[in-house]
Amino acid sequence: MAEALLQVEDLKKYFPIRRGVFQRTVGHVRAVDGISFTVQKGETLGVVGESGCGKSTMGRSILRLIEPTSGVVNFEGRNIVRLRKGQMQAMRRQMQLVFQDPYASLNPRFSIAQTLMEPMIIHNLYGSREERLDRVRRLLERVGLDADYARRYPHEFSGGQRQRIGIARALAVDPKLIILDEPVAALDVSVQSQVLNLLEDLQEELGLTYIFIAHDLSVVRHISDRILVLYLGRMMELVEAEELFADPLHPYTQALLSAVPVPDPDAKRERIILQGDLPSPANPPSGCPFHTRCPVAKPVCRERAPQWKEIKPKHYVACHAYA
């Protein structure tokens, strides 16, 4: 049994909605509303959901780039939500983030060498400039780029190459956990698979643990060991990746899977087209947040939120249909 690297318990992030001259709080956007899970060392946990499901907010709350409203985030047994500012800054060495937009996530004024040395300077790693430059060259080669690119600037690179640089920056501090927030969503199809392969190789070589946030279900299925499905800030389903696709239990997961266009013109599938729009997380439906669009909703779904239950071994679902 592998040991847990990260343990998230009842994580919540409510953003206040302020109105009026005095900026009175009139309500909250419940971006993340009680999420709990554990990530084992060396594992990849995929997190999927549509816009407003809170997956990005969740990632940033775990790293405390956004301060969580409540909850516990245990990293190697230490609750990092309680850490003071200085301790937290040191802790950031252990956990890194890779962003979606390779065009916005690199500072246009920094050369690639500066970009990659920045983390080493912040954490005072590798004494001299020569050692750091040497490390930069090794990092670039590690992510499949020419070491001579160090002198260039971000605008000289394509999206895929920039994303490799973003990954190299995350690796510069030798983290244990990397949260990947839609790392291939902005890339061309033919380049996506290059980056996915790179991520797999790095994980194997360096023993990394990933939280992979995405909206593309086939990508998540490919890279994840287990997948967590979110809807309006709540957990819907959590299970091993292939099992989720083979036997989705939650009606939302079923609809989500059936909505994915498959690159096969002969694919005959029962398509579930959900009616209506995603509700706003500022005003989520009562009870189960999915009941407004759920094809099998019952009266109880409107009244009470379903419990998080292990329906089959290691297959967790929050749905009244399995009560």
Binding site: S158, Q161, S190, V191, S193, Q194, S218, V219, R221, H222
Partner: peptide, 26 residues
């Protein structure tokens, strides 16, 4: 062929992706 081969699939076994190497020319 390369495009189709590089796509991750929603069914079947998960095998290593076959990317098209290099980048789209500018």
């Amino acid at each position: 062929q390369g495009l189709l081969a590089s796509l991750p699939k929603v069914d079947g076994p998960r095998t290593r992706l076959q990317p098209i190497e290099g980048n789209v020319p500018s």
